[in-house]
């Protein structure tokens, strides 16, 4: 069971002066249970790519398979695909429209044609998943909440569809550091505890590096890396060339190594860095 793209191309506004080849020859697979990070500079085609995962955009050429089913087929019900692959857009709070938080989250399940008591159950569950207290928030207007709360409501709106794959397009954009950490921690929980397959789109290495078990790096509409974060970050110079930075901790370790400290440089988290540095310090000062 997986999301599979086979030689996918996407062209915006074909046959006009504005023709733009946003995706070129993309082949990739996202297996059930994975946590995949998609990273790339603004305009590299990340959003275009993920909109192919649930059939919002159609490949100009190539095939998209969800759990083995080609979604361009005539008999395919796109609503079912969209239920299976939940997509949270960038700035999802801009799509809120209902008078109450609960009603807004219920929009997805309602569209799936569920019964009222099932809908309520799903709303409660979805709100618990993003750590919003049901009783406290259900009747408040989504428009009076803080930025981070609004975003959690919007994410709950997608979770209430009970997707198997959860795709989030830059879920931390525009949040303050605290809001960002909270959202990222919740996404990590959704993967670990709720067992969702997660695809996290971001342009920040710091966000993705710690969480993802695999990184897909996009550049000008093409996949340039598709590998474990440690492998990807070892290509420091090439990443710089395409305008991407490596995580701050990794940078620190490289700087220490250059100063002569005997440390590993394929470090992704602060915990790992701490261990390495302590080990190196115990070993004594380096001879530069």
């Amino acid at each position: 069971m997986s999301i599979t793209l086979h030689e996918v191309y996407h062209t915006y506004q074909p046959n006009t002066p504005f023709e733009y080849h946003a995706l070129k020859n993309i082949s990739l697979e996202i297996k059930e249970g994975e946590f995949v990070g998609i990273i790339g500079h603004t305009g590299s085609g990340k959003s275009t790519l993920v909109q192919h995962f649930n059939g919002l955009l159609k490949a100009t050429q190539g095939r998209v398979l969800i759990d083995g089913v080609d979604i361009s087929g005539k008999e395919v019900k796109l609503k079912e695909i969209r239920q299976k692959v939940g997509l949270v857009f960038q700035y999802p709070e801009h799509q809120l429209f209902e008078e109450t938080v609960a009603a807004d989250i219920a929009f997805g399940p309602k569209n799936l044609g569920l019964s009222p008591d099932k809908i309520v159950k799903r709303v409660k569950k979805a709100m618990a998943m993003v750590k919003l207290d049901y009783e406290r928030y259900k009747d408040s207007s989504p428009f009076v909440l803080s930025g981070g709360e609004k975003r959690r409501v919007a994410i709950a709106g997608v979770l209430a569809m009970e997707p198997k794959y959860l795709v989030l397009d830059e879920p931390t954009a525009g949040l303050d550091p605290k809001g960002r950490d909270e959202i990222l921690a919740q996404i990590a929980d959704l993967h670990r505890e709720a067992g969702l397959t997660v695809v996290l789109v971001s342009h920040s290495m710091d966000d993705v590096a710690r969480l993802a078990s695999r990184l897909i790096v996009m550049h000008q509409g093409e996949v340039v890396y598709n590998n474990h974060p440690r492998q990807v970050f070892s290509e420091n110079n090439r990443l710089k060339n395409i305008g991407l930075d490596i995580p701050t901790v990794t940078k620190l370790m490289i700087a220490l190594k250059e100063k002569g400290w005997p440390v590993r440089t394929d470090i992704l988290t602060i915990e790992e860095a701490k261990g390495e540095i302590l080990k190196a310090v115990k070993g004594g000062k380096p001879h530069a």
Binding site: L56, G86, L87, N111, L112, V158
Partner: peptide, 13 residues
Amino acid sequence: EKIMKAQMARGAD
């Protein structure tokens, strides 16, 4: 178009 897509992702028709 963006909002339409976002609502379609939630099953809107």
